[in-house]
Design a protein around this nucleic acid. Structure first.
Lengths: 231, 231
DNA sequence: TCTGCAGATTAGTATAGTCTAATCCGCACC
DNA sequence: GGTGCGGATTAGACTATACTAATCTGCAGA
């Protein structure tokens, strides 16, 4: 009986894995993922999403409230986190061991995450010393499916005068990532918020300890996720 | 015009890549690959092969002579060699950099070869120092599609008294590979053929320079591909 | 309360791949 | 030179995924 239930897990297809990841990301900050948002994220037409949603909810990976959206079940969440672990370990491995830049790894990891075995992922993880963060600062879920939930503040919303550590860069867009790298804005960097212009204006910061100033427009400042530093 | 021709190459699917590789291997020593052999190699039913063969010959990747078999066109051969290059570089990378054994890499490479980019393969190739052979001694095709065609003799057919270098091990079967490794029979090893029993009997060899003897049955001796050493 | 629009779903079609069952073809043997 | 058997092919069906076009629903605004 139990055996039947546990064994009867057919391997997920590539598409299913992509849908689960998308739903995870879209519903991570609470609530439901909307059909049209999933469609946009996966670059498919909305009816394709409706079709897949039906299948996924039949197999118990998601919960579907018609005309409202979907949420992952515990099982679906586990599967999504497994993919995210793979993705982030791959990104880190490719940058650390094969000379990829942080703006170029995403696409490669996107394809590999479906093909690698768990064994290979764990070998990469050990080769990397069981890292906790990927090159963009995103937390890597553990093999058992736990993920760090940090309380981070977008630079765009940080109070003037606070000292911050840049922890995550919330985009995979290559040109933006290249620009951040040029500006020295990579995870781990410390900075002071010097001032902010009103009406969604730019934020001015000073890098610590160099003191170099940087002016960051609203759109980009929204992507720089920071943690306030005590002291 | 040229542009149209060159651009109009849609990416090959996973299945198509597998069929091309199988056909390459089956027709490498001349002639046609038979439907049933392709089916056996890919673990699909013969009618599936007939269907795929039709599509592949329509797209110009193979040449089909009904009831006879198929052969690769120049284009199909190029695509097959590209996959074989990927496979062999992956196998070598996994053994050299991620601690895989030569008997365990095949399955992993088999899945990854469809997912990696050309860029990643070339990065792995440089990390490996642009190697010429994979862990089993199989030659790695160049990026431009050339492959070494060595004249190798199976140990089972080598003349008694000759000195040989073991160059390739012609199997991916894990238990056999493990056994060869235990016996010290890996590519690069030198040996003398000491004697052979009649009626498809075993071949006795002496490892060089240690002189250690080994008795190798016909079936395995057929898999050990050697090159005669001058002097 | 009605109405309309945006977003979601259903209906119907297409493609790539697979399968089983039925049929066909070519060659080896008598 | 016929005949049969084994391998190859065709016929027909199924699954997963995608699409477009048509329809439905729920809520926001009049």
């Amino acid at each position: 009986m139990h055996a039947t239930l546990r064994d009867a897990t057919p391997p997920l297809t590539r598409s299913v894995e992509d849908y689960l990841k998308a739903i995870y990301h879209l519903s991570s900050q609470g609530g439901f993922a909307a059909t049209s948002d999933i469609a946009a994220m996966l670059q498919v037409a909305p009816p394709s999403v409706s079709g897949m949603v039906k299948r996924l909810s039949e197999t118990g990976l998601i919960e579907h409230v018609p005309y409202r959206g979907v949420q992952l079940t515990a099982q679906g969440r586990r599967a999504a986190l497994r993919m995210i672990r793979r993705h982030r370990i791959l990104e880190l491995y490719l940058t650390q061991h094969l000379g990829y830049d942080w703006d170029g790894v995403h696409a490669e990891a996107e394809r590999l995450e479906h093909a690698v075995s768990d064994d290979l992922i764990e070998r990469m993880a050990s080769a990397l010393g069981h890292p906790q963060y990927d090159p963009h600062g995103d937390p890597i879920p553990t093999a058992s499916g736990d993920i760090e939930e940090a309380e981070l503040v977008p630079l765009a919303e940080a109070r003037v005068g606070t000292k911050l550590e840049l922890r995550q860069v919330g985009t995979q867009d290559a040109p933006r990532l290249r620009y951040f790298a040029e500006q020295g804005l990579t995870p781990g960097v410390l900075l002071m918020v010097s001032e902010r212009q009103p009406f969604n204006g730019p934020t001015t910061i000073a890098l610590v300890p160099s003191g170099d100033p940087r002016v960051v427009g609203r759109e980009l400042a929204q992507l720089l996720l920071c943690q306030e530093i005590g002291s």
